[in-house]
């Protein structure tokens, strides 16, 4: 009898605690930076070294590339079969240019198996949160533009000051 009361005291103690569950589809979980979600692929960075396809334990990556007029390799097709991808992160580990990386996206449910075969464009468009390449590029471009504008403004102010100074002199 005493045992029951002891047990129940624990149960009732829980009533006052904060709720721990997450209303999942409405509220998405926050993933840490290293989270291994669905890949993001950046074709500009890829040098077609084939290392990701070779290290893949399930051989789910297939790619092809060709040489352009400058004798530089660039990627033509890049497909990941998410039916068999196990998100083990080995491909991003071996990539020398970080052209493939993991995002924090994790929902892959589809109505057809064919939809799980993702190509280069889909992987490029894949939404990312932590250090997205596209966003980084955008930020860089924005920063560059701002710097340019700032420089132009400064130049203008300087020029104005100069001209006004010159005017004063004259």
């Amino acid at each position: 009898m005493f045992g029951f009361l002891k047990g129940l005291s624990v149960t009732f103690g829980q009533l006052t605690k904060k709720k721990l569950t997450l209303q999942y589809p409405e509220v998405k979980p926050e993933w840490p930076e290293r989270f291994r979600g669905i890949h993001e692929f950046i074709p500009e960075l890829c040098i077609v070294c084939n290392q990701c396809a070779r290290i893949c334990p399930t051989s789910c990556i297939s790619l092809s590339g060709s040489r352009d007029e400058n004798k530089k390799m660039h990627i033509d097709t890049y497909d990941i079969n998410f039916e068999i991808c196990i998100l083990c992160d080995l491909c991003t580990e071996v990539c020398p240019t970080e052209s493939i990386r993991m995002t924090d996206r994790f929902e892959l449910a589809t109505y057809s198996r064919d939809d799980l075969y993702k190509d280069m464009h889909w992987l490029y468009e894949n939404h990312v949160k932590h250090g997205s390449y596209q966003r980084l590029q955008e930020e860089k471009a924005k920063a560059a533009q701002e710097a340019q504008e700032q420089a132009a403004k400064e130049a203008k102010v300087e020029a104005a000051a100069k001209s006004s100074g010159e005017g004063g002199d004259a």
């Binding site: 840490p32 290293r34 989270f35 291994r36 196990i86 998100l87 083990c88 992160d89 080995l90």
Partner: peptide, 12 residues
Amino acid sequence: FNEICGARLTYN
């Protein structure tokens, strides 16, 4: 574990 290796079950 998720913070240290990016997965919750299959850590690798």
